[in-house]
Amino acid sequence: MDLGPHAAFIWASYAAFAAIIGLLIGWTLLDGWRQAKALADADRRGLKRRSDRTANQGQKTS
């Protein structure tokens, strides 16, 4: 592909554009993955805690 005398500028602008948008997409996906993981973590811990407490109460009544 011959892009004429200013090919470097065309490639540079497409590269810069791809870098910015690529970073944006990557960051968004990474953040989504992180939040999903944090939520799963919290859920698991939340369940454990609740079961912890009911177990304690069970011991208290007996």
Partner: peptide, 19 residues
Amino acid sequence: KGMQNEILRRRVKTLRLAE
């Protein structure tokens, strides 16, 4: 996607506070 992430982040935060 960003809105979903933010909602998840806020859920995690509420859960932690509730904890």
